[in-house]
């Protein structure tokens, strides 16, 4: 039985609450895995005991664990912050929010590229079921699964930036369009890992729809193929694609952060790597927290959209 829309919506939203709590807990305990004293780890072995004690006080590490957790939660809930960055001396939230649009733009572009490429490949594969193009399209992308994203990035730079000079090799250009040109290659590198599962799911969906009654009817009525394909079939296949994207979001964000390093793009990934180099405890926590919250919120939104589009999926 399908729950009523409003009750379903409320239940979906409530189901996200424990995950959000879990994410905050995890972000707090993540760096308390450190064997020994985090303050000592930050300052290094040559630091004096006084400076370590001072940093412990600054970070609140001298308080009991419950009190530390309390402070952390208060800071996260009221200010959306995990504390001031030790290295830059400003709020971690500010640093993160400044860089986040860059990373999110790459993620968005990667989603776009994956969908277009996967839709094309899946259509060709499904239309040539069990013939050579189908086999090739199913086999070749699995090679992509074992390809490290950064390595793909290196290849893309060599070919498209250094040799062909079609697109920027790295960094982010200025102006209204230039940044988007800079995001193409990194987004492409990230999307290569996403295309194989998308093709697989889309192909299966398309094969199912191809044999569906309404297609047979349309064909009998001599409705042109492209119209059937774009007007009806792809529309039907869109839903599982969105579902798969929602599941892959975490993979996409993670891949983007890594690929920023290869392309020298100053997004969240670069901020994370530098924070690690700087042993910037609160900033690392902040980035982890924001990334996880982004995943939770975006997948929640996608779930709601899917649920509204297709009531059949409202089973939660």
């Amino acid at each position: 039985m399908r729950p009523a829309p409003l009750r379903w919506l409320r239940r979906t939203l409530l189901a996200a609450v424990p995950v959000v709590i879990g994410v905050v807990l995890a972000a707090f305990f993540l760096l308390r895995l450190v064997p020994g004293d985090p303050a000592r780890m930050i300052l290094g072995e040559n630091a004096t005991d006084e400076s370590v004690a001072q940093l412990r006080q600054e970070l609140g590490l001298d308080k009991p664990l419950e009190a530390q957790f309390g402070d952390f939660v208060v800071s996260v809930v009221t200010r959306g912050d995990t504390g001031d960055s030790l290295f830059y001396g400003v709020s971690s939230r500010e640093l993160i929010l400044k860089r986040a649009p860059i990373s999110l733009s790459i993620v968005a572009m990667a989603v776009l590229i994956s969908i277009v490429v996967a839709a094309l490949l899946a259509t060709v594969a499904a239309a040539n079921r069990d013939r050579l193009p189908d086999h090739l399209i199913r086999i070749i992308p699995t090679i992509g699964l074992g390809m490290p994203t950064f390595w793909i990035g290196l290849l893309l730079i060599t070919v498209f930036a250094v040799h062909l000079r079609w697109l920027p090799a790295g960094g982010v250009g200025t102006g209204p369009y230039e940044p988007w040109r800079s995001y193409v290659l990194p987004a492409l590198a990230v999307s290569i890992g996403l295309v194989p599962p998308l093709v697989r799911s889309l192909r299966a969906e398309l094969l199912e729809v191809f044999s569906a009654d309404f297609v047979t009817t349309y064909r009998a009525a001599h409705v042109p193929w492209p119209r059937i394909l774009f007007g009806h079939i792809l529309r039907n296949a869109a839903l599982p694609t969105v579902t798969l994207l929602s599941v892959s979001l975490s993979f996409l964000i993670g891949g983007t952060l890594v690929v920023e390093k290869v392309f020298g793009i100053n997004g969240l990934g670069m901020l994370l790597f530098n924070a690690i180099g700087n042993r910037d405890f609160p900033l690392v926590q902040g980035i982890a927290l924001y990334c996880a919250l982004a995943v939770v919120i975006i997948s929640l939104v996608l779930d709601v959209i899917i649920g509204l589009l297709d009531p059949r999926t409202r089973t939660a």
């Binding site: 879990g22 995890a26 993670g254 890594v258 939770v296």
Partner: peptide, 14 residues
Amino acid sequence: DTIIAFPFYVIVIS
């Protein structure tokens, strides 16, 4: 659910 929410490389690198 919590662990899945963290992007793989973010949590591994942290």
